[in-house]
Write a protein that binds this DNA or RNA. Structure first.
Lengths: 217, 217
DNA sequence: ACCTGAACACCGTTCAAGT
DNA sequence: ACCTGAACACCGTTCAAGT
């Protein structure tokens, strides 16, 4: 007689295990065989719950991106942009090893479109022409992705000797690694503030702002 | 008697062949075996000229990055920043499939340090405190890398039907793919202009600008 | 319904053997 | 000096076989 015989695996458990490996060992170290081992199972078993490694990664990426908050656009556009950018950045920073994957692939999933719609809608409702709304959304994304990705300061090894006196302007470069995340965050905030400041100025010059959108392009 | 017997391969030819595969088929499609086939040779032969696949990729990345121009810092800092950012972006855009690799790994090579030194030096000579010079360099890099990377508009498939009426604010989203590179470029220029505008304002508030750098942090 | 051993078509890299 | 076949330790994925 057949019993419930509760299963060893589930899509959720697989996703969690995969993200653990990504966070601790890196994206390159994630293999279906290693993941299976991590879960006390054989590689083939994973395919009862997950179609493909690539789809698994997309599912994980979507879960990470669900932390992004676009609710601020119910207030003014600048608040919406700020909350969006910061929560977006925080979501990526929580899983830095996954950023290259999230940032390279296009995102055509439901939730991702809803977010894009909220950003675009928040900006156009505030009076930005469609074309500007698109560009502002793109610019902000560049800043977030670039900031989460490059981890600018990680490029400098934590060893003053490397720089000796050949690069006089980098005499403090060896300090960067230690304060990397702090500097990364400050740089991001600086750029975000400058961007929004610049946009505020541009906003004042818009012909029909506040009025219903004029056709453009 | 031994003759010159000129070799089939060279590091240069391997690099060129690899970049051809990356540009046409994508980074994921590059394998040492496929590269060898592309060059009319066997995989093992490559290792007479190249230490490792990873090192090969770094060498290619360095060649691409050699197109970046930091000479503008000999003029004013805003010109330097603009020329740097644009040439940086152009270098990456010339080989989009390589961007994830270039952007994820730290760059501790000679040429890369020279560029960082030129940027940092140009900014500090103009009166920016060290800490700001670091942040401005980082911010600009975020913009360039994010812009070259995400290819924001590629996230929207070129099919209006997908969006139907569920996302009213994305009613022009299907146009994005067609004008993707144009919008990407305009968004980048918008953000760069806003950043530099914001920095100009900040520059005016610096305590001792023009004077020798005051010690900080 | 779910797990698995075995297999297939791939990888990057090494190395003794050839010229 | 340079190219190569064969091998090693890996991949992602499929599938018939088991329970």
């Amino acid at each position: 007689m057949p019993r419930p015989n509760n299963p060893l695996l589930s899509a959720e458990r697989i996703r969690r295990g995969a993200l653990e490996i990504i966070d601790t060992l890196g994206l390159e170290e994630l293999s279906m065989r290693r993941l299976a081992e991590h879960l006390g199972v054989r590689a083939a078993s994973l395919y009862n719950h997950v179609a493909t490694k690539d789809e698994l990664l997309h599912d994980i990426a979507n879960a990470v991106m669900d932390q992004v908050d676009v609710s601020g656009f119910e207030q003014d556009w600048a608040t919406g942009l700020t909350i969006w950018a910061r929560s977006y950045r925080a979501a990526l920073a929580a899983h830095p090893n996954l950023v290259p994957f999230i940032a390279s692939g296009p995102a055509r999933r439901e939730a991702s479109l809803r977010r894009a719609d909220a950003v675009h809608g928040g900006l156009t409702r505030a009076g930005w022409p469609q074309r500007y709304a698109t560009m502002i959304g793109a610019s902000t994304k560049y800043l977030v992705v670039g900031g989460a990705m490059g981890s600018f300061s990680a490029g400098f090894v934590d060893d003053a000797a490397v720089y000796d006196d050949r690069y006089p302007n980098l005499d403090h470069a060896h300090l960067l690694r230690r304060h990397a995340s702090e500097i990364d965050n400050d740089s991001f905030e600086l750029a975000l503030a400058a961007l929004i400041e610049g946009l505020h100025q541009l906003y004042g010059t818009l012909p029909a702002h506040g009025a219903p959108n004029s056709p453009e392009e």
